[in-house]
Design a protein around this nucleic acid. Structure first.
Lengths: 251, 251
DNA sequence: ATTGTGCGATTGTAGGACAATCAGACAGAC
DNA sequence: GTCTGTCTGATTGTCCTACAATCGCACAAT
């Protein structure tokens, strides 16, 4: 008979260990989001006294969080000149997308094999959000929803490494998009072009799903590198003015 | 006519920008190496005052470096309980190796397509070092040389993302190996089993190279998870006593 | 046997201090 | 007129000290 202090074998534990996020965690996601959303422009320097003050944290805590982003590669540190948001120019886009293609295709194959129904449903619901964003003609929301579909696909793989890499890849894709052009453009048929991904995952067709992903990403590279050459109508939107200051963290 | 201050078009620039590594950089590699070499045992806590003193740096600098390793995933931070070297138990080995397989096979295909002769030569010379290490019956050196071959293969791909991921994967593979068993074992035919990788890369045979890598890594998983089930002789060596303290950094 | 409490140790965070370094401006030399 | 050297203000890199918060553990109380 199991002791009272431990859940019986075979039953799901009622409580999971509670872990309060550290301040560094909070700052990290705040910074990452600020870069992702464009509130921190690519190439812009991060003056630490100022940003630490805006975030309401100490300079040390800010620096620790910044070092995490340095390790992720979305912030670069130049000795003596401080930190700045990375830029990913035209030369970096192909390598970035080969890496991304690798992660997504591998994740897709894993997901086809092992994803639960719940995980598949999460992908579909992400796609539903994309459809709605497109109907609203909100370019930024479409861009985010687009990446969310890909994110859920990788999450469905259940592989922690792939998810970690994908989470930084998503930010880097956004960085590349910001670096290449100041105005944010997305294709108007984003939802339609992503529909096969969801359907093929639901059909558990690994080969076709991989092919669809490759096509989707190759398309994205084309659109980034030669936007004029592609005949698809795009939904343009001027780059929104970045929020001049970061939100203070409330802890 | 190009101005005198810039190199002529088409000529390789004579000078590359010199970047002095920051102290945080140095601490980071020092810690990573200490984990990789086993000087810092897996699961061991990193007491910061003590380690900062041993490294001869301030507590703040040490913490910044540690946060980079947290972002890499080879150090975990538990609020209130500090930092500890990650452990990767039996459950984590398969996901780790699927991620690793993905990185290496993708890199291999890129390398077959685009690697320079010089990069291919680097892979071969890494393999030569493996042969020598095996002849010396030095298990730890064999393990390091083994990973070095794989590392050079990924480096030959020329993709920055793959290289970055591989560099942390290598440490994590070592962590898994340390976690699973305290004694370090390597197969005695490591050099022989890696020879095809070099040859197939030189022959630029992508499909065969990928297959060889998959076989090699599947083998490694087997060896880690069921060392008794494999019939290959192994070269065992008791885990060396870790250096009790880190080397002070000289700057 | 469980619960409550105190204690020592370590971390989390803040803030100050100061040398090192950098970008840009300015003046002087060829 | 262009280049070179120097100065300056600002910012970073690094260190130190300090203190509250939290944790692990032992011990007493119920």
């Amino acid at each position: 008979m199991p002791s009272a202090s431990r859940p019986a074998v075979g039953t799901a534990p009622a409580l999971s260990p509670v872990t309060r996020p550290s301040t560094v965690d909070l700052i990290t996601v705040e910074l990452r989001n600020a870069i992702y959303s464009g509130a921190l422009r690519v190439g812009s320097g991060l003056r630490e006294i100022e940003m630490a003050r805006q975030l309401g944290v100490s300079r040390g805590a800010f620096r620790e969080a910044a070092q995490r982003l340095v390790a992720e590669g979305i912030v670069v540190a130049t000795p003596g000149r401080g930190l700045s948001v990375r830029t990913i120019g035209r030369d970096g886009i192909r390598p970035l997308y080969t890496a991304r293609t690798m992660v997504e295709t591998t994740a897709a194959r894993l997901a086809v094999d092992r994803a639960s129904e719940q995980q598949v449903a999460a992908v579909r619901s992400a796609h539903d959000a994309l459809v709605q964003a497109e109907a609203a003609h909100d370019a930024l929301r479409v861009g985010a929803a687009d990446l969310a579909v890909h994110w859920e696909l990788v999450a469905a793989s259940g592989n922690a490494w792939l998810q970690q890499w994908m989470s930084t890849l998503i930010v880097e894709v956004r960085i590349a998009s910001f670096t290449v052009s100041d105005e944010y453009t997305v294709r108007t048929d984003a939802a339609e072009s992503h529909a096969p991904l969801v359907e093929l995952l639901e059909a558990r067709d690994a080969d076709a799903l991989e092919a669809a992903i490759r096509e989707n990403l190759d398309d994205a590279v084309m659109r980034l590198l030669a936007p004029d050459a592609v005949g698809v109508q795009t939904l343009e939107e001027p780059r929104p003015l970045p929020a001049p200051r970061l939100e203070p963290l409330d802890r």
